[in-house]
Design a protein around this nucleic acid. Structure first.
Length: 427
DNA sequence: GGTGCCGGGCG
DNA sequence: CGCCCGGCACC
């Protein structure tokens, strides 16, 4: 800080010093005092600006890590990542954008501790190579536990949004959404045999189809060895429009995202089970783009397909393919062949594009660190709503200040004196 | 511009 | 903690 930063002849410092001195002399005058303070502050700022090198690089590194993490997450598509963000949150609070030199400096907190298992673990789980079919709601639980423990280190984890989840008491909004329309789901069975896209409404039917048509067996179901299972997949057809899925992803308000601790599942749509428990604030909040979701749902007559294979290894996570008219991944059959299970990752990117046909360019979302949570944040962050909730509407009754006036400040209740919520004239 | 008060800083 | 203030949302 004290580094000489000025290169110019008239160093601001000198001037400032003078002023400060002046202020001291006058002392009494609040104005001067404040001014001097301001100047001092300024000094600090300028100095900090002058030494960008270290910070810059740090930042970048940090960013990279984060980015990587987010990419992984995205790819993994695991809906369960929710809990982990908690720790991240902590990091964020301290230094998100680029402020605290301290923040960026200690990526460890951010990445190693919080990010570590939170991000990487999930991705592993969802990794295609390892069969971990259940990415459903349950899965997140296990994760949570570790998260809490690991997080323990958090110095100031006071208001961990995700934590309150525990009881759900604080935020009743938490749970509301879990159970969605299951009813609107239609389950179909699709034959995965090459060049055969037969879809039947019953497992038995598809099995028989495979057995007889593709396997050339005539015997009845009892003589089957179960091989058929490998050649068909279960398709869940969401007749309900993709609304919810989209809604969660909806618009974008990049800036507000920073406090994305909210661990909602990124793609609620795919796993309609877990969906966003974290919709707390944005519970209903209508964000500015009211149309956000609706237009989509409307425009996308297409149903949302949830593809699920019976075999864990071939089914990565439940993948949702929004088959909107425009969407490239129109036919599930193409992308999902029994053989190339790896394809699952592909579909991921498209969704974002779909729903936000408007402005949310995929690229944009990428830009942010840990887009995952970011995205989430977005969804959950009702720009204004958050503040609205947190901030009291403000009581309209007369308060100490009004009643007694500034001159009788000593008569105010302490709260008022402290500029806190009035305790005497509560509404 | 005034007011209520949250979020923070300081001792 | 108590005390105070910056700053913000609301009026």
């Amino acid at each position: 800080m004290t580094i000489a930063l000025e290169g110019g002849p008239l160093s601001p410092e000198a001037v400032e010093e003078q002023r400060v001195a002046d202020g001291k002399r006058v002392g009494r005058d609040p104005d001067t005092r404040s001014v001097s303070l301001l100047e001092q502050k300024r000094k600090v700022v300028s100095s900090s600006i002058d030494v960008p090198h270290a910070r810059r690089s740090e930042e970048e590194v940090d960013m990279d890590k984060v980015t990587a993490a987010m990419v992984l997450t995205t790819l993994s598509t695991s809906p369960l990542v929710r809990s982990p963000p908690v720790k991240v949150n902590e990091g964020l609070s301290g230094s998100w954008k680029e402020n605290g030199s301290a923040g960026p400096f200690t990526p460890s907190s951010n990445n190693s501790s919080g990010g570590y298992w939170s991000w990487s673990a999930p991705s592993d789980q969802s990794n295609p190579s390892t069969p971990s079919p259940p990415l459903s709601a349950d899965s997140f639980k296990p994760f949570r536990v570790p998260s809490l423990g690991g997080v323990g280190s958090g110095p100031a984890g006071p208001e961990d949004p995700s934590l309150d989840e525990q009881d759900g008491s604080s935020l009743l909004f938490d749970e509301p959404i879990p159970r969605k329309r299951k009813n609107s789901m239609k389950v179909m069975f699709k034959c995965l045999w090459k060049n055969c896209g037969k879809v039947l409404s019953t497992a038995a039917g598809i099995q028989r189809h495979i057995r007889t048509i593709h396997l050339g067996r005539n015997c009845d179901s009892d003589c089957s060895d179960g091989e058929e299972d490998f050649y068909y997949t279960e398709i869940k057809l969401n007749t309900d429009s993709v609304a919810d899925g989209l809604s969660s992803l909806s618009p974008v308000s990049p800036s507000v995202l920073s406090p994305p601790p909210p661990p909602p599942s990124p793609l609620p749509a795919l796993s309609q089970l877990s969906d966003s428990h974290r919709p707390p604030q944005y519970s209903d909040t209508k964000e500015p783009h009211a149309g956000g979701t609706t237009p989509l749902s409307r425009s996308a007559p297409s149903a949302l397909y949830l593809i699920h294979t019976d075999h864990a290894y071939q089914a990565t996570a439940p993948v949702s393919i929004p088959s909107s008219s425009s969407n490239a991944t129109g036919s599930p059959s193409t992308s999902f062949t029994p053989t190339n299970s790896s394809s699952f990752s592909i579909s991921w990117q498209s969704p974002p594009v779909t729903f936000t046909g408007t402005t949310v360019s995929p690229s944009k979302s990428h830009g942010f660190g840990e887009q995952r949570s970011q995205t989430i944040a977005v969804l959950s962050s009702p720009p204004r709503a958050t503040t609205a909730l947190s901030r009291k509407v403000r009581g309209e009754g007369k308060k100490c200040r009004k009643v007694y006036g500034m001159e009788n400040r000593d008569m105010w209740c302490t709260a008022c004196r402290w500029k806190k919520a009035c305790q005497r004239f509560t509404d």
